[in-house]
């Protein structure tokens, strides 16, 4: 953004700066390629034995996409460190909650299936 402001200063009154959109389209292509890769995996890696591996790939790809959307489009990567941590730490706790309750869910299911046998 600092480059943008420097440009604005050298402008004549009423003149509009040239668009600077290279980074936006770069991020767009990254998102498209990751999504395409996800579909490729969804249709080629179908064997039940690879289920866990396949799902971990999906989760890693999702977090990667989230990184690009939040970091570049929402500009968080270029904010001050304290703001970045303010957003990331509570979100990290949520990840723990998901892992805990998924484990709990498997356990509840197992208990219920043995309840009457």
């Amino acid at each position: 953004m600092s480059a943008n402001h420097a440009e604005e200063l050298s402008l004549h009154p009423g003149e509009i700066a040239k668009p600077n959109t290279g980074w936006i389209w770069k991020t767009f292509w990254v998102l498209v390629i990751i999504t395409a890769f996800e579909f490729l995996i969804a249709f080629t890696m179908t064997s039940p034995g690879l289920r866990t591996f396949r799902n971990s790939i999906f989760i890693v790809m999702t977090i990667l996409k989230a990184f690009f959307i939040v970091g570049e489009f929402m500009h968080l990567k270029h904010e001050v460190k304290s703001l970045i941590w303010t957003i990331l730490i509570p979100t990290a706790l949520l990840v723990w909650l998901v892992v805990a309750l998924v484990t709990e869910g498997s356990y509840v299911g197992e208990v219920l299936s043995h309840m009457f046998s």
């Binding site: 703001l83 303010t86 509570p90 909650l97 998901v98 309750l101 709990e104 869910g105 299911g109």
Partner: peptide, 27 residues
């Protein structure tokens, strides 16, 4: 706006957490 979005993250997080739990509870 950032803090509102953080609170909204918790709402959607609750939905997806519930989804994870319920899905793993079923066969």
């Amino acid at each position: 706006m950032w803090f509102f979005l953080l609170s909204d993250t918790f709402t959607f997080g609750a939905f997806l957490t519930a989804y994870g739990l319920i899905r793993h509870k079923h066969g």
